[in-house]
Amino acid sequence: MPPRHNHHRDLDARLGLDPELLAAMRECRVLHDRDGRGEFFHVHTEVFGSRVFFEAVQRVGGYTGHGAVNAPVRMAAHRAARQGGDRSAGP
């Protein structure tokens, strides 16, 4: 599922990620979070039926959270897909 078009730009502004990593994450539609202990990489599928979707996550270092910052991004992508829109378009 594509996140909104400015998601990765926001990540860059907030976290200053390596440009190559950021480009790869944008291409593969990977969401990301980071805290003082580690990083969290997150992808998800479209919604199947009315409520089922699958997620794959990778925790790097000591990250122990659940990527809560990504929940609104995922929900917006699912909502846009249900409404037939593609919010990934744009610069």
Rank of each mutant, 00 (worst) to 15 (best):
P2L: 12
R4D: 15
R4P: 05
R4I: 10
H5N: 14
H5K: 14
N6W: 05
N6C: 15
N6A: 11
H8Q: 05
H8D: 00
D10E: 12
D10N: 10
D10C: 07
L11H: 03
L11R: 03
L11N: 00
L11F: 07
A13K: 13
A13V: 09
A13T: 13
A13R: 09
R14Y: 08
G16L: 05
L17G: 04
L17T: 03
L17D: 03
L17I: 11
P19Y: 00
P19S: 01
P19K: 03
E20F: 13
E20D: 07
L21P: 01
L22W: 08
L22G: 07
L22F: 14
A24Q: 09
R26W: 05
R26H: 13
E27N: 15
C28A: 09
R29H: 08
V30C: 02
L31Y: 03
L31S: 04
H32T: 04
H32L: 05
G36Q: 12
R37V: 06
R37A: 14
F40S: 00
F41E: 01
H42L: 03
T45D: 13
T45I: 11
T45K: 10
E46T: 12
E46K: 08
E46G: 13
E46D: 10
V47C: 11
F48C: 12
G49A: 06
S50K: 15
V52D: 14
V52T: 15
F53S: 09
F53E: 14
F54Y: 11
F54M: 13
E55V: 06
E55H: 04
A56N: 11
A56T: 07
A56C: 15
Q58G: 11
R59C: 02
R59H: 04
R59M: 06
V60I: 15
V60W: 15
G61Q: 14
G62I: 04
T64V: 05
H66P: 00
G67N: 00
V69R: 12
N70W: 00
N70T: 04
A71T: 12
A71Q: 14
P72R: 03
P72E: 11
V73R: 00
V73C: 02
V73M: 01
R74Q: 13
R74C: 05
R74K: 15
M75N: 06
M75D: 12
M75K: 12
A76F: 01
A76E: 15
A77V: 05
A77R: 00
R79L: 15
A80M: 11
A80C: 13
A80T: 08
A81I: 06
A81Y: 06
A81C: 09
A81S: 12
R82H: 05
Q83R: 12
Q83T: 09
G84V: 05
G85S: 09
G85K: 10
G85L: 13
G85I: 07
G85F: 12
G85R: 15
D86T: 04
D86L: 03
D86G: 01
D86S: 02
R87I: 08
R87G: 02
S88C: 08
S88N: 04
A89L: 15
G90D: 04
